[in-house]
């Protein structure tokens, strides 16, 4: 480590590049960038050990604005490139920045496998339910009927839910947050960073130009308290201004039910206490649909397991220990050899 660098603790400004930020004015990406620059010093991240890898799309411009190592790669492939980075150097702190098109359409396969393998990556999926960079086509998260340049009569195909996908892929960490929530987002980023293994974070991000207000039904200040449920490990799943609403198991079913405490004999004891290590609960929570249920945000699932790159290197080390000093000259002379004189 370079001494000059370690003397002073970096500040948010130290994580900002001199490059002009080129997102549309009012784009949700700005708030996410600011949040990231803010939390990195707080979690003692070193710029030289931090790498941002992105694919293609508006979100994927992100690395250019971070004064760390950064690799703006090709469409959909960021998880695969980041996997290579971690295989080569597991010590690096690697963030993957992707979007709904990049991560769930063209790069769906790589996202699946990075999550399945549990590569130690912090994956941020900026979901704006639209293709912004290519000027507004519907995306795999767009709701049925979304009218765009490529779907003037409304889209007809069924959308995918990012967190349901991640859970199905075997992700060991799943969280959701909202671009404008500068109080909530930092806590989620910090948790994602602290998690060893693939951390998947869906950020509801507003594309002001092509899909403005698509999440307004739960992100607008006026409705947020009633429409968002912030899941916290060990605490009951409550929401609402008065924190008098909650989720319980509907008696006689394996479904969740939104209830009001004090109504129909419901008490606080009926409300489920959030257990982020419970995969079944996580799957119920990510399956809740608006507007009948609140949008569940926060760390929905976190259950650490050994990481892919750690296992790979463990295997290499054990073979090394077993076989002694590797000698290529001796290796290629194994088996039958003969002398010609």
């Amino acid at each position: 480590m370079n001494n000059v660098q370690t003397v002073s603790k970096p500040t948010p400004k130290d994580f900002a590049t001199d490059q002009e930020v080129r997102w549309c004015p009012g784009c949700g990406d700005y708030a996410i960038l600011k949040c990231m620059q803010r939390i990195l010093p707080e979690i003692d991240a070193r710029p030289e050990n931090t790498v941002f890898v992105s694919g293609i799309g508006c979100a994927s411009r992100f690395p250019y604005y971070m004064e760390t190592y950064g690799f703006h790669t090709i469409h959909g492939r960021a998880p695969a490139i980041a996997t290579g980075v971690k295989l080569a150097n597991p010590e690096l702190d690697v963030w993957v920045v992707t979007g709904d098109g990049d991560g769930l359409s063209i790069g769906g396969n790589h996202l699946l496998h990075a999550l399945r393998r549990n590569v130690d990556l912090n994956i941020l999926l900026f979901n704006n339910e639209i293709y912004g960079l290519t000027k507004g086509q519907y995306s795999p998260t767009s709701r049925i009927g979304t009218k765009t340049a490529s779907t003037p009569y409304g889209s007809v195909d069924r959308p995918i839910d990012a967190c349901q996908f991640a859970l199905g892929c075997g992700s060991t960490f799943i969280a959701r947050t909202v671009d404008t929530d500068q109080k909530h987002m930092p806590t989620v980023f910090k948790r994602a960073h602290a998690h060893k293994g693939a951390s998947f974070v869906e950020i509801f991000q507003n594309c002001i130009v092509y899909n403005d207000a698509v999440f307004a039904d739960f992100t607008d200040k006026a409705v947020a308290a009633e429409a968002q449920l912030h899941a916290i490990h060990g605490e009951p799943l409550l929401y609402g201004k008065e924190k008098n609403k909650g989720l319980r198991i509907k008696p006689g079913t394996v479904q969740l039910e939104a209830v009001i405490i004090g109504k129909d004999g419901v008490t606080l004891d009926d409300i489920i206490v959030h257990d982020e290590t419970d995969k079944t609960l996580a799957s119920l929570l990510v399956n809740l649909e608006r507007p009948d249920f609140p949008m569940v945000l926060g760390v929905i699932y976190a259950n650490p397991e050994s990481t892919f790159e750690a296992e790979i290197h463990k295997q290499i080390e054990s073979v090394k220990a077993e076989s002694g000093k590797a000698d290529l000259n001796a290796f290629i002379r194994q088996g039958r050899i003969w002398e010609v004189t």
Binding site: T73, R77, H110
Partner: peptide
């Protein structure tokens, strides 16, 4: 890797690192 593209991309990521 999961496919040919991921295979080359992982190698590029490794070289980058």
């Amino acid at each position: 890797a999961e496919d040919e593209i991921a295979a080359v991309c992982s190698a590029i990521g490794a070289s980058y690192a």
